[in-house]
């Protein structure tokens, strides 16, 4: 049996796989016509295949599906929301951060509803209006919350008005003038000022 040339045996397998080329098939057939061993080899191969193919299907045990379903891990993928949260820990952290930040900021906004202003010498107060009198010069920044400011004299510094109006006739202000009305502007102001504070704190430490 070992007398069959290797390439012929190779052609037999190509033939059995159904992907033999026409030339190989002709060569195989021509060779097999004269070679008893090759005929027997081929015969044995085909009966081997028939033998394996005659295997009966072994039935799956009953209750197989139920058993698999019982063994499935229960907690995984229980609800869509849970699995989504679990898959996106960064979003969860960011959302929590935003919630806590805004809560502290808005509570700060509520507490700041009272009229207040930066204490400076030579400032006049009429009701909820801060006045820089004519001929006077205020050195330093002025912050007025929940009130207006009228500048008749001069200010050497910034003026910030929160929830109020800045009014001036013959004013002389060397610094910036900010009017903050809306909640979001107020938020922005708060963030800016806390950043400034942090910066000055760092500078001081140096």
């Amino acid at each position: 049996m070992s007398t069959c040339p290797e390439h012929i045996v190779q052609y037999m397998h190509e033939y059995l796989d159904g992907d033999i080329s026409r030339e190989h098939e002709q060569e195989l057939k021509a060779y097999m016509r004269d070679c008893k061993d090759c005929q027997q080899h081929m015969q044995e191969l085909t009966s081997t295949i028939a033998f394996v193919k005659s295997a009966a299907v072994i039935e799956v045990p009953p209750n197989f599906v139920e058993q698999v379903m019982q063994k499935l891990p229960k907690r995984r993928m229980r609800t869509g929301v849970q699995s989504w949260l679990r898959r996106h820990p960064f979003f969860v952290a960011a959302a929590l951060f935003c919630i806590f930040m805004s809560a502290s900021l808005f509570s700060g906004y509520k507490n700041d509803q009272e009229f207040s202003f930066t204490k400076q010498p030579n400032l006049q107060v009429e009701g909820q209006t801060v006045i820089v009198p004519e001929g006077e010069t205020v050195k330093g920044d002025i912050v007025v919350k929940n009130g207006d400011i009228i500048v008749k004299g001069a200010v050497e510094g910034d003026i910030t008005v929160i929830n109020g109006k800045y009014m001036a006739s013959t004013a002389n202000v060397t610094g910036q003038i900010d009017e903050v009305d809306e909640v979001f502007e107020w938020l922005w102001y708060k963030i800016k000022s806390s950043a400034k504070n942090a910066w000055s704190f760092i500078e001081k430490n140096e």
């Binding site: 299907v57 072994i58 045990p61 197989f64 599906v65 699995s83």
Partner: peptide
Amino acid sequence: GDQQAYSDIVSLYQQQVY
């Protein structure tokens, strides 16, 4: 999240896999 839908998949392929 519909775990029960998996039973259809199992019953479809159980024979072949087993």
